Simulated assay, not measured.
Amino acid sequence: MNIFLIAFAALLVLFSVMALIRNDYWTFRVFDYPRLQKFTLSVLCLFLLVFFYTGNTVTKILLITAVAANTIYLLYLILPFTVLGKKQVNKAKGYKHDSSIRIMISNVYQDNTNFTGCLNEIKKANPDVVLLLETDAKWEAAVNDLEKNYKHTVKAAKNNTYGMLLYSRLELQEAEVRYLVEDDVPSIHSKVILKSGQCVVLHAVHPTPPVPNENVRSTERDKELLLVADMAKEEKLPVVVIGDLNDVAWSHTTELFLKMSGLLDPRRGRGFFNSFHAKYPFMRFPLDHAFISPDFKLNRIKRLNSFGSDHFPIFLDIQYEPQADKEQEPMQADSNDIEEAQEKKAKK
Rank of each mutant, 00 (worst) to 15 (best):
F4M: 12
V13S: 06
L20K: 04
D32I: 06
L36C: 07
K38L: 15
V43M: 15
F47E: 06
T54L: 05
G55H: 02
G55T: 02
L63P: 06
T65S: 15
A68Y: 05
I78L: 13
K86F: 03
Q88H: 02
A92M: 07
A92F: 08
G94D: 10
I101D: 08
M104L: 15
S106I: 01
Y109P: 00
Q110N: 10
N112G: 03
F115T: 03
K123D: 12
P127D: 11
A137K: 10
A142Y: 00
A142Q: 06
N149C: 01
H152Q: 09
H152L: 00
K155C: 04
A156G: 01
T161S: 13
L165G: 06
L165R: 03
L166Q: 01
E171P: 00
E171Y: 04
Y179K: 09
Y179G: 08
L180Y: 10
H189M: 13
S196C: 07
Q198R: 10
Q198C: 00
V200N: 04
P207V: 03
P210D: 11
V211T: 14
P212V: 11
E214R: 09
L226N: 11
D230K: 14
A232W: 03
K236P: 00
P238H: 11
V240H: 07
G243Y: 12
D244R: 04
D247F: 01
S251Q: 13
H252I: 09
G262E: 09
Y280T: 14
P281L: 10
P286M: 08
H289R: 06
A290F: 08
K297Y: 00
R300G: 02
L304Y: 03
G308K: 13
G308P: 10
I314H: 00
E321T: 14
D325S: 15
E340A: 10
